[in-house]
Design a binder for these strands. Structure first.
Lengths: 335, 335
DNA sequence: CCACCTATTGACAACGCTGAACTAGGCGCT
DNA sequence: AGCGCCTAGTTCAGCGTTGTCAATAGGTGG
């Protein structure tokens, strides 16, 4: 059965198609009698607006691309879920783009694959705002996380304060040799906001961090990477009394490696993660972590995007969101 | 800057818009000289087809809705990721619908919110195929998991054989009183394929399952529900030497509850999950589980949907996929 | 050299919708 | 009474693309 069009409804209600359109758009200058008649007709023929037709006129799709590096990581799955629901609350549908790899991420954010959306919210992993700019931005793009770029709207999560807080917590509970399980490329010296937080906390406590305590995960965010990284670190013979991990997934692998090696957590070594995923609550021992304010982040990102869709065309803005420490068993003071 | 249209390209290449269209669609009867000229022009003006215009003519969107109950559960996150990527391989974009609750799921699958897609792949949780039928299906819908309906294409995952296998495994390793952590509504007697598998295994071993060993999780798939369910079961004073859980999330909560209660796993009680999520590999002890063949499931679902989009209009088909046992530490024989 | 055929290209309409401009009728005001 | 004004509703065009069919050019055979 052919799908009903405006004309079908119009014929049934005995008015013009335009009047039906006006009713559906909630325009004024329609008598309530007509309005009612149209609404009945709409229901009777089971009419639903054809987005293609509307989109052709308006030049809009009502759709937003949400770009995440993957979904297997609970952090991104949760973020994606929140974003989709928040956008849906604003009457926007979303299309999720899984950007495995650098080029895919760039394309998804501004390339060929993104012609059919009004705007983009990208949770960058591989790329920086600069990449975006180099590509030329043809529609609103809001960056959620990562290093800010002056030109793009960006939500800066509390990476620095969060990582500083967790490092301070470790130092305050007596740890002095804090290993860092780093999720950047192997061999590249740590950098970025989280690392800066790590350093700041050490400085505040007058402790000099030992660069030999940096362990690299081969694949930045897999639990298995944390495991490997920790096994590797242990093999170097380094001594440490705490491990601060760049995210929960790595921390969970670290916990396992320590347990296999007979190291007691938290008695011998404290372990902390970052992201505060649900999973951390149920590890053995439960995992201390940093909880970024995902709700805040999502709200800010959606708000800025909606702003842009509404026509705002100013300079790139920056919203900084918070993070708070969630202390569980894995970082209790050494016994 | 206004986005380039076919006419812009046409003007630049010195041909008609239709010829440009023909080139882009790969139609025959275009001389290679013209073809080349057009392609150059396309690149020069940075043309990209406007899906609204195309959609208006073709009546298609090239988009598929993927409906999942949530993303916080790793099982669905993984499934969604695979589906999105598989669809993308077929040149289809996808829009992910999070269907919190029964009505939302129905609407997302066939309702108002789904007018802008060519087809739907739904991972049902709250609803049955019957609900879909009652609503009237206006576009291809493939059901992925859940109880099959004769009219709808459906991928039936290896729930029965999987749950039977894991139950047999427990029985074969000497367990006799196998508690069941059930994810259905509180108080409703267990049913469905997994439960049938549980019963079948018992029958094969000549063991009579004790109905007092069914524990209910208040929220079917949260780790916390598994925890609560197990605490509740322990409070009844029931004795058991194994716990078979309907999914990994519940099993992880169960592990925690047992550990808090001083019960040793697997020495005193074996625990098994279902889904074989990554997380289970890193629990303490690592979690035995049933691995449904997600790859197979996704392939089958996408294949059937593409079939339907291609015009196939036969009766509902059913593809049964397998499942295999993944034995880890949590179900080692009692010491 | 002409008629005819084929290969290539173009003109036009249509898809379903909405903005702009317009009409008809009723109202109040002078 | 006559004027303009407001309201409710209509008509028309056009958004960007593709299908249909006509037209044109170029080559071929008689």
């Amino acid at each position: 059965m052919r799908r009903a069009t405006l004309d079908d409804v119009a014929a049934r209600a005995g008015v013009s198609a335009k009047t039906v359109s006006n009713v559906l758009l909630g325009r004024p200058n329609v008598s309530s009698a007509t309005r009612e008649r149209v609404q009945t007709a709409v229901a009777e023929v089971g009419y639903a607006v054809n987005p293609a037709g509307r989109g052709l006129v308006s030049g809009r799709t009502g759709r937003v691309a949400v770009v995440v590096p993957n979904l297997y990581q609970p952090y991104f799955a949760e973020l994606a879920e929140r974003l989709i629901l928040a956008l849906s609350d604003r009457g926007l549908t979303s299309t999720l783009r899984i950007a495995h790899g650098r080029a895919a991420e760039r394309d998804a954010a501004l390339g060929v694959t993104t012609r059919d959306v009004d705007g983009v919210i990208v949770c960058p992993h591989h790329f920086t705002g600069e990449m975006l700019l180099a590509g030329g931005v043809s529609r609103p793009v809001v960056q959620l996380g990562g290093a800010p770029t002056p030109v793009l709207d960006c939500v800066v999560m509390g990476e620095h304060i969060g990582f500083e807080a967790v490092t301070r917590h470790l130092l305050a509970t007596g740890r002095r040799r804090i290993a860092l399980v780093w999720n950047g490329p192997e061999g590249v010296h740590p950098q970025g906001a989280r690392y800066a937080g790590y350093l700041a906390a050490h400085e505040a406590f007058g402790v000099h961090p030992d660069e030999a305590l940096v362990a690299f995960g081969s694949d930045w965010d897999r639990r298995a990477s944390g495991y490997e990284a920790m096994v590797g670190l242990q093999r170097t013979g380094a001594t440490f009394d705490a491990v601060a991990c760049m995210n929960d997934a790595l921390a969970i692998g670290v916990l396992r490696a320590l347990r296999s090696g007979g190291v007691r957590v938290p008695d011998d070594v404290a372990v902390t993660g970052f992201d505060d995923t649900d999973e951390g609550e149920f590890t053995t021992p439960s995992l201390s972590s940093v909880s970024p304010e995902q709700g805040e982040m999502v709200d800010a990102a959606v708000r800025m995007l909606v702003d842009r869709l509404g026509g705002y065309d100013g300079a790139g803005r920056e919203v900084r969101t918070g993070a708070h420490l969630v202390i569980r068993d894995s970082s209790a003071p050494a016994s």
